[in-house]
Structure formats: structure tokens, C-alpha cells
Nucleic acid binder design. Structure first.
Lengths: 201, 201
DNA sequence: CGTCCGCTTGACTCAGATCAAACTTGGTGG
DNA sequence: CCACCAAGTTTGATCTGAGTCAAGCGGACG
């Protein structure tokens, strides 16, 4: 279930806002009235540590849901901010709840989305536990290619990929070069082929 | 909603198995009939990388759900294994689906659990992006203490805590000692107080 | 009483972060 | 069509701090 579908499904219980500047969506302690969907741009959840420094808890990108936990809480636990140039859908908490109550198929689809999230996040955490940049990249790519496939076309940029798997972009580019030299991958722009070693010789 | 409650709620659609040895719960490609709840011990999800090495995608502990994504898929995408000494609940896919369909409150509670998971996983990922062990620990503790509180009683062991935030236990102990010397925390066994610096002097 | 496991400290290593700089690439607008 | 700008890509040099291996302590538990 895409964010857009969710907005359509909710009808009057959803509205979309466009922000040219960074804008606060909610503050910690505010009563929860909405969860959010990022249609364009980015948003982030922030909390202040005990020592007063800002801690970013989550960066949401295009297509992500944002502050889902608000559905099940009376007050927000963090500060939420939309970054400049974002389009954000406000999804009414009550609207979502009543849909979930009345429409089993909707509830199921919503759970599906969350379950998928959980799965991806968990594997991402384990991925980041791989210390070696080379191995982490191979593992990340292996998770993304379909069964039996060897080719993978990167959706975004390599720089973005680096961030997704928790590497600096420099480290990523260097590792890619090493992997190519070792014939573990073969790359052309944003397309990559795995396992040249086994297939080639 | 705890795993035990889920088992009770499902009635005949759930059963519990106890394993004395490591046991395969399902293999990649098997048709999905169950998701699982870990009542005792551990289980893990594994996949094989393109190069043939084993990649652990998820380690589930006591109280965790396991392979939730199976609810929304025809076949398992990974191998699932229960470790020796585990008690694992088999939760029928059909059972969960029909409950979700018929009982809005159940669907809601299930979503709540997943949403909470998502939130914790996301913040955990951001947490692990903090390079400095000292700062990561402060941030992790800050997320765990209640608002206004300064004290935190560790649920498990420090070693376990180290693992949860992605540090070696040695690095954790050294960092704790540094933080104590700098009066940023005050520790007694598994109880810790944050922000001594500001409060003390 | 012995064993396991969490805790603690020391010494060493190294791979990835960081800072810096150059080069592509793509798109915008005049 | 070209000037220009922003962002991604690439490479180099340096450094730091967390991982790792090793070893000793102490409490819990059978």
C-alpha cells in the first residue's frame, strides 16, 4: 500500500501540505492527531538527549510513513520536522483507526506494510554489523537481487546506497573498485553484476 | 500484545514446540504456514549471499515475533532456525489472518506491536550511526529513561546492552569508565544515573 | 568445589572516517 | 548552444578509535 493510495483511501481524513521551508510538524508532548506520509522530500524525528544535544531518531524519505507510532499513543514522543521542499500527507489518527476497525482488508494491508518495514530494518541492522566494507556491499547487493539474478540496477545514486548501508561514500567507491579488481562484481554506472568470479573463471 | 497472549488468543491455531537442539523451522521457498513467537531462547533468519556465505538477517530473542513477513508472502524468503534450548510458538498464518479480518481490536493491537518495532528499529539504526562509543551510550540511555528521569536500571546485562547498541563489550566498559571519570554518568552495578555533570556542579 | 559467565583492563592493529581536491554529469536558463 | 551550477563520482593522505586477542577477577549456581 503506497502513501498515495492511503491518502485516497482516507478521503477527507487526509490532507496534503507543501512546505518551502523547514517546518515543525509536531512537538514532543503534543496530543497525537495525525501520522504522516512523505510524498516528496524528507522529514525527520528528533529527540533531545539528557545532555541537551539533538539526536536524530529517524529520517523519512519519499514514500515512507512517518510517526506511525503516534497512532497508538496519546502524545508524540519526539519532535517531527518536515524539511524544506517537502510534500507531506497528514493522515488522521481517527480516520486510520476507524478504517482499521471496519475494514479487515485495510488492516491487513497496513500490517503488511509495517511487517515489510520491520523485516527490512532488521536485516539492515544485521547488515551494518558486517565490518568489512567489501563484504557488507556484497551482502547488501545479495539481499536486493532477485533469486537467481546476478544483475542489479541501482534505484538511486551510489552515494545514497552508501548511506543506506552505513558507509561513507568514499569508502563505498574504494570498496567497489577493490571488488571489481578482485572480479567479485562488474559495474557499469549504476548497474552492477554480482559474482563474476564464479561465472567467469 | 505479548507473544503468550497471542498464543492464547489464537487457541487451536497456535502450538508450542520445545527444542533441545538447533532445529530448522522452515527453508527458503517453503510455503508459508506459520509465523513464530519466541517464548524462550533464540531463533535466527539466514540467507545465503550470492557468493555462498551465510548471512544472518535477524536474531530473535525471548518475546520477539519471528518471520512476521511470512503472513503476507506465499513462500519464505529465508531459512529459519531455532537455537538449542528454545521454546517456539507456531502461529498459524490463516488463524492470524482471520482474526485480523474479523476482530478490529486484534488487528489494531497487532499493528501497534509492529509500529512499536519499527520505531525502535529505526532509532536503533540512527543510534548505531553515532561513531563515538561515549556519545552512542549517552544517546541510547537517553532514549530509554523516561522523561525527566535521570536513573535507569538495566534490564539485562551490560554485555547484552553492548550488543543491542552495536558495541563490543570491551568498548562499552571502557566508555562507561570514561563517562564516569568525566562525570557524565554515575554507575552502580546495573543501575546508572545520567547527567551528573549538570546536577552536581 | 569447580565451572560458567559477566565483568574489567591492557596492548596492538587496522579499516573506515575525515578532510581535501579534482573530475564528471546533468540540468537550467540566458 | 554554451555558461554555469549543483550534485555525484573519484582519488589521495592522514588519523583515530573501536575491534580483537589475551588474561585475570569475582559472583552465581549446581
Amino acid at each position: 500500500m503506497q502513501v498515495i493510495e492511503l491518502v485516497e483511501r482516507l478521503g477527507r481524513a487526509a490532507r496534503v501540505e507543501t512546505y518551502t521551508n523547514d517546518t515543525v510538524l509536531f512537538r514532543r508532548g503534543d496530543p497525537t492527531r495525525h501520522m504522516f506520509g512523505i510524498i516528496q522530500g524528507q522529514a525527520c524525528l528528533r529527540r533531545t538527549t539528557f545532555e541537551g544535544t539533538e539526536l536524530i531518531i529517524h529520517r523519512a524519505h519519499e514514500g515512507d510513513l512517518f510517526a506511525e507510532a503516534a497512532l497508538f499513543s496519546d502524545a508524540y514522543h519526539c519532535d517531527g520536522q518536515a524539511l524544506a521542499g517537502s510534500r507531506v500527507a497528514f493522515l488522521s489518527k481517527l480516520g486510520v483507526h476507524s478504517l482499521m476497525q471496519d475494514d479487515g482488508a485495510f488492516a491487513s494491508a497496513f500490517c503488511q506494510r509495517l511487517a515489510g518495514q520491520v523485516q527490512r530494518l532488521r536485516s539492515n541492522i544485521e547488515l551494518r554489523a558486517i565490518r568489512s566494507a567489501d563484504d557488507r556491499i556484497i551482502a547488501a547487493l545479495s539481499l536486493r537481487v532477485g533469486t537467481g539474478e546476478a544483475n542489479y540496477d541501482l534505484a538511486g545514486t551510489w552515494k545514497g546506497f552508501a548511506q543506506e548501508i552505513g558507509l561513507s561514500h568514499e569508502a563505498l567507491y574504494r570498496a567497489l573498485k577493490r571488488l571489481e579488481r578482485a572480479n567479485r562484481v562488474q559495474r557499469q554506472g549504476r548497474s552492477i553484476r554480482l559474482g563474476v568470479k564464479q561465472l567467469g573463471d
